[in-house]
């Protein structure tokens, strides 16, 4: 049974968890070479996007197969702001959050009328249609080519403090603080009054509305929060080098959903675990296929096969994901 905790206790706990995550990734990066440091930067970036799904699907029960499209909105907003208006990257990231939140507002207003499969299908169509806007209006969005953008160089005070910083380390230092902040925000949101409201809507809409909750408004608010996170993730993701339609394919949306489900849709620790799996599993499989000298056709498609199978096995064995399985084991030990 979850008890209602005071705001102060929760704030303290989520601060602690966010800091632990921050330090853990930082310590891990010191053990790693440049390639894996870059992968850790990817984890930090994608974690923000996975959290946006945990928030949307896990906490409020709405499903989106189009988070990649919202990431594209964030990425394009930031890239356009930086290349056209020449503002700083950090300001562009913050503005990208607001622009995608606004986009989420419109999306939420449409989506609040939809449920279950209708919402899934509509967001899937959106995931295909939004990147095609960039090609349709290619004079403004520069079509297939997209925008070449990057994180730039680390500021002088940081190089003075830490010495030489490689590109991989710098990309991690850009992404990681945002990831820790998002983690903090999501932990806070889901443990306070609004989080409880969302869960009530998720579990039983009729009961929630009888308790005085405005269902439609709640759903729209969740969409706004989730889109803000996805947009931020999209901006950081694009600034690794390129903002273009090919960077935000439909497969990205599905991969993010997979991460959220494997870890456990209702658990924030699960989101972290799932993100690690989708980023590092392809690497592990590549090592194994190289070791076994499997033919190329197998090694290309094996990661996708394993991720698909993991998703299926998770859903069939325990829809609550690895976090749910862990809880289950803990319960059994107690009794």
């Amino acid at each position: 049974m979850s008890k209602v905790k005071s705001h102060k206790v929760i704030g303290f706990r989520s601060t602690r968890l966010a800091i632990i995550f921050f330090l853990f990734i930082l310590l891990l990066s010191m053990q790693f070479g440049p390639y894996n440091q870059f992968q850790l930067a990817n984890i930090s970036t994608l974690l923000i996007a996975v959290l946006s799904i945990t928030l949307l699907t896990g906490a409020s029960g709405q499903i989106s197969l189009g988070q990649g499209a919202i990431m594209a909105v964030g990425g394009y907003s930031a890239a356009l702001l930086v290349t056209r208006l020449e503002i700083s990257m950090w300001l562009a990231f913050v503005l990208a959050i607001f622009i995608s939140a606004l986009f989420g507002l419109f999306l939420g207003l449409a989506a609040a009328r939809l449920s279950g499969p209708y919402l899934a299908g509509t967001t899937l169509v959106m995931a295909l249609a939004i990147p095609s806007i960039a090609i349709r209006f290619d004079s403004f969005f520069s079509g297939d080519i997209g925008f070449s953008v990057d994180y730039g160089y680390p500021p002088d005070w940081l190089t003075n403090l830490l010495g030489e910083i490689s590109i991989e380390e710098w990309s991690l230092y850009v992404a990681l603080p945002f990831a820790a902040l998002s983690l903090f925000a999501v932990l806070n949101l889901s443990n306070t009054r609004s989080g409880r409201t969302w869960r009530a809507v998720r579990d039983n809409e009729v009961a929630a509305s009888l308790a005085g909750i405005n269902i439609a408004r709640t759903k729209v608010i969740v969409f706004v929060c989730s889109s803000a996170l996805a947009g931020l993730a999209g901006a950081i993701y694009g600034f690794r080098g390129l903002v273009a339609p090919s960077v935000y394919p439909t497969d990205l949306s599905l991969l993010l959903l997979t991460a959220a489900v494997i870890g456990g849709l209702r658990s924030i620790g699960g989101a972290i675990f799932g993100t690690f799996v989708i980023v590092f599993l392809p690497d592990v499989i590549e090592k194994i296929t190289k070791f076994l000298e499997l033919p190329e056709t197998i090694s290309i498609y094996l990661p996708a096969l394993m991720i698909g199978l993991l998703l299926l096995i998770t859903v069939i064995l325990n829809p609550r994901g690895s976090a749910g399985a862990l809880e289950h084991i803990r319960h059994r030990h107690k009794h």
Binding site: T57, S60, G61, Q62, I63, L65, S115, G116, P117, A120, R202, D203, N204, E205, L254, L257, T258, V261, L265, R266, T297, I298, I300, Y301, L302, A304, L305, I307, G308, L309, L311, L312, V315, I316, P319, R320, G324
Partner: peptide
């Protein structure tokens, strides 16, 4: 998880996406 209303319709959708991914990868292999 399936106790909640919205999850009952969501979980089969996720399962069907898993099947889609597996079939595509198998066809590739």
């Amino acid at each position: 998880l399936l106790n909640s209303q919205s999850m009952r319709t969501t979980i089969p959708v996720i399962a069907s996406l898993g099947i889609l991914g597996v079939l595509k990868a198998l066809a590739g292999i």
